[in-house]
Design a protein around this nucleic acid. Structure first.
Lengths: 112, 112
DNA sequence: CTATATACCTGGATTATCTAGGTATAGTAT
DNA sequence: ATACTATACCTAGATAATCCAGGTATATAG
C-alpha cells in the first residue's frame, strides 16, 4: 500500500489478496496490477509487502502455488485460493463490515 | 484497539479520537469509554495507545490540553480539538471514505 | 547491446499498537 | 483501620505490518 494507506483494517491486505484470488488463479505481479485496477488506483501494493504475505498465506494453507511457463516463456508462480482460504476470506469480510460500521457510527456522531 | 482490530485504516485511531473531540472537550479515560460506547463495543482503545497518541496530537497542534479538578476532586487532563485538528479530521474522513470505497470495490468484484 | 518491462525475492528500517508494568487518588467494603 | 476496586494518567520495551531499497533474471523494444 502507499504510505498514506498504510495499515489496513483487520487483516487488510491479506483480505484483499484473498478476494482477488477468489476470482481465479493469479500470479504476484498480476495481483499488484489487478488490485490497482479494481480499486481505481487507490491501492498500490508494494512487492515487499506482497511476496512475504503470499509466502505466509501459503504456509498457513490459505493458498497453494505452482510454477508455470507464461506464453512469453517467462516463469511465473501462480497462486490459487484453498477452501480454508475461502473460509478465512469470509471471516475477514465479516470483520471488515463490523469494523467499517463502527467507524461509520463514530464519525456519524460528530457531524450530525 | 483490540488485537483483532489492530492497525486501523489511514490515520485510523487519530481520526477516531479527533472525531470524539469534535463533539466536545474530553479527558483520556473518558475517550476510551466513549469510543467503546459509540462503536457499540467494537473499539477497545488501549491506554498505551491513547496517551502517547494524545501527546503527539498535542505536539502537532491538533488538540490543546488543560488540567482541571473533577467534581470528585481528582485531577483530569481535558483535551479540546483545535481548528487545525478540525481540518485534519476532515482530511482523514475524506481519506477514510476513499479507502473504504476501494475495499468495497475489491470485495464486490469477488462475490458478484 | 542497451534500456525497459516483467517477475520474483529479501534484509533492515519504520511505525502503530500492544503488553505489562508503574504512580496516585477516591470511594466502597470488610 | 485496611484492603480492594475504579478512576486517571503515564512509559518502556516487544510485536507485527508495511515500506524502502536493494538484488537476480528473462523477454522485448529501440
Amino acid at each position: 500500500m502507499k504510505k498514506t494507506d498504510r495499515a489496513a483494517a483487520p487483516g487488510g491486505t491479506a483480505m484483499l489478496v484473498l478476494a482477488l484470488l477468489s476470482t481465479g488463479e493469479m500470479y504476484g505481479y498480476q495481483m499488484i496490477e489487478e488490485l490497482e485496477r479494481r480499486s481505481e488506483r487507490v491501492f498500490q501494493l508494494q512487492e515487499g509487502t506482497l511476496y512475504p504475505l503470499l509466502h505466509s498465506l501459503e504456509k498457513d494453507g490459505l493458498v497453494t502455488a505452482r510454477n508455470a511457463q507464461a506464453p512469453s516463456g517467462r516463469t511465473r508462480r501462480y497462486y490459487r485460493i484453498t477452501t480454508a482460504g475461502q473460509r478465512a476470506l469470509e471471516e475477514k469480510e465479516r470483520e471488515w463490515r463490523v469494523y467499517a460500521g463502527a467507524v461509520h457510527a463514530v464519525l456519524a456522531g460528530c457531524t450530525p
